[in-house]
């Protein structure tokens, strides 16, 4: 009796003792994000640049605006989870500004300043935007075609012996080949470089989709088929309403891998033959030694790739709601 009492009060004491210092930080942290950005703004504005850089004042204003917005956000209690990241980001941008724009610590022009990057977005946003749209268009067609045919081939491999007999050796011969290796040949054999890029991207995304659809279907518990068969289900139902949904988790792994492979294929195709898109933009920027433009293109590329993967995961989460637990992107 007294033992439990002691345990209880002991717990209560340690509970209150540890609560105060830990409880203070989440309250204070959101209020530090704004000042971090404002400090970056002040440094940018008042510390003279080491060279004649464009848009220094605009950058200072931008940092300042973000800083004020974050203060408002803190007042509205919107920044709780993201506060640490926002603080580090503000401090990091400030440190970059000091190191490169004020001190030129790293050799130019390979390492740019924050204002160089900002200047690219201001002066060249039109071309960057068009390049992004072109890349997205190229990717969408090739990836969709490759994924759909990959799933179709995977279903065939999983459900039909004859299809497997004829397709498996071809898949083994061509599939593991990096699609990039086919690029020089494709640009010669296929008259349109756009079409050649699409074909190779379809190949890049189709192979993992086919293999994982097949493996997903191969792993379906045979009892699932028996249950449907004993109720009179025919081949069509067994394939599309039993095998396919059961294989869905694996299919999404294939779609994810295929998306990564088509990103690589997209950029290489644009660098080597397709005369548009983000890959082409980068190639062009390198030709002119326009390093800030390369950084800007990389930034846009990263946003595009992570955005598309987020989209894929959203679709997956919706279709696989029935799964007990899944990886969150």
């Amino acid at each position: 009796m007294s033992g439990t009492d002691m345990a209880f009060s002991g717990q209560a004491i340690t509970g209150t003792a540890s609560a105060s210092p830990a409880g203070l930080r989440p309250v204070l942290l959101p209020w530090l994000a704004g000042p971090a950005w404002l400090a970056a703004a002040l440094v940018t504005h008042y510390w003279p640049d080491a060279d004649d850089f464009p848009d220094t004042n605009l950058l200072a204003i931008l940092f300042g605006v973000v800083g004020i917005a974050l203060l408002i956000g803190a007042a509205l209690r919107l920044l709780t989870v993201r506060a640490p990241w926002l603080i580090v980001l503000g401090l990091g941008l400030g440190a970059w500004e000091i190191a490169q724009a004020k001190l030129i610590a790293l050799p130019r022009p390979f390492f740019g300043t924050p204002q160089d990057l900002l200047d690219v977005f201001i002066t060249d946003w039109h071309r960057l935007g068009l390049s992004l749209l072109h890349s997205l268009g190229l990717l969408a067609v090739g990836y969709a075609a490759g994924s759909l045919s990959g799933i179709a081939v995977g279903i065939g491999l999983g459900r039909s012996k004859r299809f497997r007999y004829w397709t498996h050796p071809i898949l083994r011969a061509i599939g593991p080949l990096p699609p990039v290796a086919l690029l020089p040949l494709a640009f010669v054999l296929i008259p349109s470089s756009w079409l050649a890029g699409e074909a190779l991207m379809a190949l890049a995304s189709g192979f993992p989709a086919a293999i994982l659809t097949w493996s997903g279907i191969a792993a379906v518990d045979p009892a699932y088929y028996d249950v449907a068969r004993t109720m009179g289900a025919r081949e069509r139902f067994l394939t599309f309403r039993v095998a396919l949904p059961a294989a869905m988790p694996q299919i999404f792994v294939g779609l994810f891998m295929g998306l990564g492979a088509s990103f690589a294929m997209l950029i290489v195709a644009e660098m080597l033959g397709v005369k548009a898109g983000l890959g082409f933009y980068m190639q062009w920027a390198q030709g002119w030694a326009a390093y800030p433009n390369m950084y800007a293109a990389l930034f846009v590329m990263s946003a595009m790739c992570t955005g598309l993967i987020t989209l894929l995961f959203r679709v997956r989460d919706r279709i696989l709601v029935w799964q007990k637990d899944g990886l969150k992107w």
Partner: peptide, 12 residues
């Protein structure tokens, strides 16, 4: 209709 030892409900 055959009923199995496992429920074999479709998880999806």
């Amino acid at each position: 209709i055959l009923m199995f030892q496992d429920p074999t409900l479709y998880p999806w």
